[in-house]
Simulated scan of single mutants.
Amino acid sequence: MSSARDALAARRSRSKVTDAAPSHEEILAAAAVAGRVADHSSLHPWRLIELRGEARARLGEAIARAEASDSPSTKPLRAPLLIAIVAARKPSTKVPHWEQDAVASGVAHMLSLLLDEAGWGVMWRTGHYTRSESVAAMHGLGDDERLLGWLYVGGRLDAKPGKGDGAPKLLDAERFVSVLD
């Protein structure tokens, strides 16, 4: 079993994937673990929506409406499974919306790590159309929900010769960490 450090160090976004995808049951199992993210007051202010098959084409049509385009977007067809990450904000006097959105983002990141570790290719995609009415309506979002983006998930492709399949090098943490005296 690898450590969390190993999983994080090995993680990389994969923009190109095969047509294979995890099953609904695999997503449920991963979501149960990802849902263990820190969550002030245990509000669980998130939900996930699986988009497979024709649902991806309908998303392409909704994106086209958001962009005032005559042609459906083909972006949702880049992976066999898209997992919409939804911040499902709950009424709370203790937990502001930004913190609830952070929980939903944390679930998305944990889910992406779990799927990556399980051997799937994953990339988190966003865009201005995540905030459009047509895309929100296509996902059936309520007034208290915000679409944060999608995890594009599919089978991993073998690395091209000479490209390697390793994770990007670790960042220079000195640039981002300071000590307050």
Rank of each mutant, 00 (worst) to 15 (best):
S2P: 14
S3L: 14
A4M: 14
A4Y: 14
A7K: 07
A7H: 08
R11H: 12
R12N: 06
R12K: 13
R12C: 05
R14C: 11
R14G: 10
S15R: 15
K16W: 11
V17P: 01
T18G: 08
D19A: 15
A20Y: 04
P22I: 02
S23D: 08
H24I: 10
H24G: 15
E25V: 09
A29C: 00
A31N: 07
A32G: 12
A32D: 13
D39S: 05
S41G: 03
L43R: 03
P45Y: 07
G53T: 08
G53Q: 09
G53R: 08
E54Q: 14
A55N: 11
A55K: 12
R58T: 11
R58F: 04
R58E: 15
L59T: 10
L59W: 11
G60F: 09
E61F: 12
R65N: 05
A68R: 15
S69E: 13
D70F: 08
S73C: 09
T74Y: 09
R78D: 01
A79Q: 03
A79F: 05
L82H: 09
A84C: 04
A84H: 05
A84M: 03
A87M: 10
A87R: 09
A87Y: 12
K90T: 10
P91Y: 05
T93Q: 06
K94I: 01
H97D: 14
W98E: 12
E99G: 06
Q100V: 05
D101G: 04
V103Y: 03
S105A: 15
S105P: 09
V107C: 05
H109K: 13
L113E: 06
L113W: 06
D116M: 04
G121W: 04
V122R: 03
W124D: 06
R125S: 04
R125T: 08
T130C: 14
R131M: 11
R131S: 13
S132V: 08
E133F: 05
E133G: 10
E133P: 11
V135F: 12
M138K: 10
L141A: 06
G142A: 15
G142W: 00
E145I: 07
R146V: 12
L147D: 02
L147G: 03
L148Y: 05
G149I: 03
G149Q: 01
W150F: 14
L151K: 00
L151F: 08
Y152N: 01
G155F: 02
G155K: 02
R156V: 08
R156W: 02
L157P: 01
L157F: 00
D158S: 10
K160D: 10
K160Y: 03
K160L: 13
G164M: 04
D165I: 01
D165G: 15
G166D: 07
A167N: 00
P168D: 00
K169T: 13
L170N: 00
L170E: 12
L171W: 03
L171G: 12
A173N: 02
F176I: 06
F176G: 00
V177N: 01
S178I: 03
